[in-house]
Design a protein around this nucleic acid. Structure first.
Length: 883
RNA sequence: GGAGCGUUAGCUCAGCUGGGAGAGCACUUGCUUGACGUGUAAGGGGUCAUAGGUUCAAGUCCUAUACGCUCCACCA
């Protein structure tokens, strides 16, 4: 901030400069430091070639808030950043890019492709990191990691081999989800189920040797009949009991298949007869295993029918479907076609309908590790915020199936398994063995597959700290404290980190999981590329500043809940930034050539100073508590209210006269300045985690001797700032001022007309209090002079009266008093008080309340009743006076 | 088929462990006061989805119901 201050806050000119300063000073860097307690967050690594979206912005903002908070609290706060290689996502992008250049990935081969991929990573990898910096993320960039860097790759190998040796990783031919477009297997978590309107084709399978008798089956995927190896009925089903064991003619294939009995079949559903295709349906696969059925794979990897499909070979699956249905119809075997809505599995990356297929793949055995992960939650080592996500976590783990980790991709960690070209022996090892341990042949080739991208991110909390080496970082920063992520990623990542960490390190990877929701568009829709309704966080930053964006994302949102983004909200945030900017501008202007004075004894301060300090004190305490409990939205709104409503709208207004009169009374003016600066800087500290840039800019300008608010101490409750009497005096006076403002508006008193203000109290104590506190409110009360007294001398006849808790305030407005309006106003007040009295009496006349409620509550109600009764008496007196 | 979430002012949402309904935006009406009109002052607007229950006391706890949303699940 220069001497010539802009009237409005302009973030653009400030944010980059401050971020550079922080980087240069090394504030983001954390080191093993035995003198401090560690606090660690690992950043969910964004896709290396990704683009920052609102979801990231929310996620990173929350983490940045927590890490800045803890850093200020004196923790050695490490925010460990990095990026994810994002196997499929990146491979698809690189493949597309190559295709646009006329290059076919398969023609150039694995090595050349990987060169392109690394080049791509090099070119775009830094992009999202720079975008995070724009947000103000105070991550330790010196420690930036990448899931495919040397260390992370070593951790991946280590874990793979350990799990393999323990028997937790195995290779097997099992039914997996196959994406025909991406040409790779995918895990269950990557399959999205969506309901599609399709058909139920009812088909007759002729019974062998029984002319004219059929078994009617119903299917949603007729083309798979090419791979049928049985028809199943329920063993309890009387209708078909005689069929079991008979052979059926499988139309269009010339094969015959048996009728088997299996409890899996639901008698009520369809015809009660199910075609069994073990190679292309997970349930059928299980049935097939139970009955020793042949598994006939009828699909190529691109989901065309393979050579086993006879005349349909080479057709796409949907083409084949049409052709098969048509042929069945010609044969008179198509009974009927019924519209049917059913759930179809699609690949979450590309939307392609996945095909269940049997393929040799690598799996992680989940049962044992899942148990440990469940235990960690049960015994409290791991906690979700909010707690309701426990259930989602547990449900998934309790129903978990083995994890298919191999991918038919090139971009990723290659599986460390080697096969002997001679005898086929498999060796799992870090390095390619020189020779086959069985036949001593020297030709070995590595497994072609790579690992699921989540395999490496599952290790992220410890691989980034140097594991499997016993590094000082592991020792000091691990386990990490809190993981911040969206609920959509619990299955993919959180669970896998937990069981991996428990297995490899014996500890939970983090103690708390702070879950946030999705940022939706103004209409509540998910932001998505296809809808084109995404809002670019960088555009928001450009227009309104990172602080405004951050505040917007944190305001009015509870953990785990989705929120809607709207430009109106950003404007409100921007306005707040501008507000504190101007408050600071005001203070700076007043500081010019003047001195702040901190009295030796804070008891010497003016009442309003004591009031705002007390107020600050309680905000400090509450906000800190909220932060500790991850109630970030509540925390920031408290700071917001304090700064805007109490500090700006009341305190600054109250002390203005002291500032104008600085030359006459340097002590009062100087103390006001000291209080202004003290309260503002303390409040700025509370706000800093949320709005790092503007708070830094103001802080450093207000306190030129300070280097940065980032490294300032987090405010703590100070007993010496606690002035309960002063606080209540100012609160009383606020009530008086509000009453005066209200009356003046209803009497339409011109702004420039000042009046004497008579405060009539009934007790000596109140009188002294008002005598002490009122002078500071001259301007706010439009008062010529305050007269605190215990009777109505000197008030005159035509005065407006305002009844407050412990006094009656009179404004002798004479000619301006409209008796009718005044009566109306007082009547309204009387009514209000009567209602309150009725409420209090209702409670106090209730024996249940008096006997059972805590004493404190009862006493409080009694006091209220007394107060309201007194007030009503006064109102009634005024009314009778008017009449 | 399971599970979860939501239902509070015109709109978007807060409301922690039960003790007199809140914010922002929008709206109405004042304000060319020397920080800010991205401001300021005053104000209107809610039977906290419905029905029961627990309790002296329920937006808050419990049980149903309705509507909306989400996740999980192999119904061919």
């Amino acid at each position: 901030m220069s001497k010539e201050l802009a009237k409005t806050y302009d973030p653009a000119g400030i944010e980059d400069r401050l971020y550079r300063k922080w980087m240069e000073k090394g504030y983001f860097h954390a080191e093993v430091n035995p003198d401090k307690k560690p606090f660690t967050i690992v950043m969910p690594p964004p896709n290396v070639t990704g683009q920052l979206h609102m979801g990231h912005a929310l996620d990173e903002t929350m983490q940045d808030i927590l890490i800045r908070f803890k850093r200020m609290q004196g923790f050695e706060a490490l925010w460990q950043p990095g990026t994810d290689h994002a196997a499929i996502a990146t491979e698809v992008k690189v493949t597309e890019k190559l295709r646009s250049e006329g290059i076919d990935k398969n023609e150039i081969g694995r090595e050349a492709f990987l060169e392109h991929a690394w080049a791509w990573k090099k070119e775009y990898g830094g992009k999202i990191i720079n975008q995070l910096k724009k947000l103000g993320a105070s991550a330790d960039w010196d420690r930036e990691r990448f899931t495919m860097d040397e260390g992370c790759s070593a951790a991946v190998q280590e874990v793979f081999i350990r799990l393999y040796e323990k028997g937790y990783i195995y290779k097997g031919s099992r039914i997996i989800n196959w994406c025909p477009v991406c040409q790779t297997s995918i895990s269950d978590a990557e399959v999205e189920h969506e309901d599609q309107n399709g058909f139920f084709w009812h088909i007759n399978y002729p019974i062998v040797g029984e002319e004219g008798r059929f078994v009617e089956i119903a299917t949603t995927r007729p083309e798979t009949m090419l791979g049928d190896t049985a028809v199943a009925v329920n063993p309890e089903d009387e209708r078909y009991k005689d069929l079991v064991g008979k052979m059926l003619e499988l139309p269009l294939t010339g094969r015959t298949i048996p009728v088997i009995a299996d409890a899996y079949v639901d008698r009520e559903f369809g015809t009660g007869c199910v075609k069994i295709t073990p190679a292309h349906d997970p349930n059928d696969f299980e049935v097939g295993k139970r009955h020793g059925l042949e598994e006939i794979n009828i699909l190529n990897d691109d989901a065309t029918i393979n050579s086993l499909g006879g005349k349909y070979a080479g057709m796409d699956r949907y083409e084949a479907r049409k052709a098969i249905v048509a042929d069945l119809e010609k044969l008179g075997l198509l009974v009927k076609v019924v519209p049917h809505s059913h759930s179809v599995g699609t690949h979450d990356r590309c939307g392609t309908t996945v095909e269940p297929m049997i393929k040799p793949q690598w799996f992680v055995r989940m049962d044992e590790m899942a148990k440990e992960a469940i235990k960690a939650l049960d015994d409290g080592r791991l906690q979700f915020v909010p707690e309701r996500f426990d259930k989602i976590y547990l449900h998934w783990l309790e129903n978990i199936k083995d994890w298919c980790i191999s991918r038919q991709l090139w971009w990723g960690h290659r599986i460390p398994a080697y096969y002997c070209e001679e005898c086929g022996e498999m060796v799992v090892a870090k390095e390619k063995p020189k020779m086959c341990p069985r036949c001593r042949a020297e030709k070995l080739r590595q497994d072609e597959d790579t690992l699921d991208t989540w395999f490496s991110s599952a290790l992220w909390p410890f691989s980034t700290l140097g594991w499997p080496e016993k590094t000082p970082e592991m020792e000091y920063f691990y386990p990490t404290d809190v993981l911040v992520t969206g609920y959509d990623i619990i299955f993919f990542w959180v669970i896998r980190m937990v069981f991996s960490a428990l297995e490899q390190t014996g500890e939970v990877p983090f103690h708390h999981v702070l879950i946030h929701g999705l940022v939706r568009d103004e209409l509540g829709r998910k932001m998505s590329k296809s809808l084109g309704n995404g809002i670019d966080p960088l555009e928001v930053i450009d227009q309104y500043g990172a602080d405004a964006l951050r505040l917007t994302l944190m305001t009015g949102n509870a953990p785990g809940n989705d929120m809607r983004f709207s430009w109106k909200k950003v404007e409100a945030s921007r306005n707040f930034a501008n507000k504190i900017w101007n408050a600071s501008r005001f203070i700076l202007m007043n500081l010019e050539g003047k001195e702040c004075v901190r009295p030796d004894d804070l008891q010497d301060l003016c009442l309003e100073d004591k009031w705002i300090l007390s107020h600050l004190n309680s905000v400090v305490r509450e906000v800190t508590e909220n932060m500790e409990k991850y109630e970030l939205g509540i925390a920031v709104s408290k700071v917001y209210d304090f700064l805007w409503d109490e500090f700006c709208d009341w305190y600054i207004e109250i002390v203005k006269t002291r500032l104008w009169n600085y030359d006459e009374n340097k002590k009062a003016g100087g103390e006001a300045l000291w209080t202004l600066r003290t309260v503002l800087t303390e409040a700025l500290k509370l706000l800093h985690p949320f709005m790092p840039f503007i708070t830094e800019e103001i802080y450093c300008t207000l306190l030129p001797e300070e280097e940065s608010i980032m490294i300032a101490d987090w405010p703590v409750y100070r007993p010496e700032y606690d002035f309960p009497e002063a606080a209540s005096a100012v609160d009383c006076m606020k009530e008086v001022v509000r009453g005066i403002r209200d009356s003046r508006i209803s009497m339409q008193v011109p702004q420039n007309r000042k009046t004497n203000v008579f405060i009539v109290t009934s007790g000596e104590k109140d009188a002294r209090m008002y005598e002490a506190v009122s002078p500071a409110f001259g301007n706010l009360a439009f008062a010529k002079e305050f007269h605190v007294q215990n009777d109505k001398t000197g008030i005159g006849t035509d005065a407006v009266s305002i009844v407050v808790s412990n006094a009656v305030v009179y404004l002798p407005l004479e000619d301006l008093v409209d008796r009718e309006k005044e009566t109306e106003r007082l009547e309204k007040e009387k009514e209000r008080l009567s209602k309150e009295i009725a409420r209090c009496e209702g409670m106090l006349n209730n024996p249940g309340f008096v006997n059972k409620a805590p004493e404190q509550k009862v006493a409080a109600e009694k006091a209220k009743l007394e107060k309201y009764k007194e007030m009503r008496e006064k109102v009634l007196a005024q009314l009778s006076h008017l009449a």
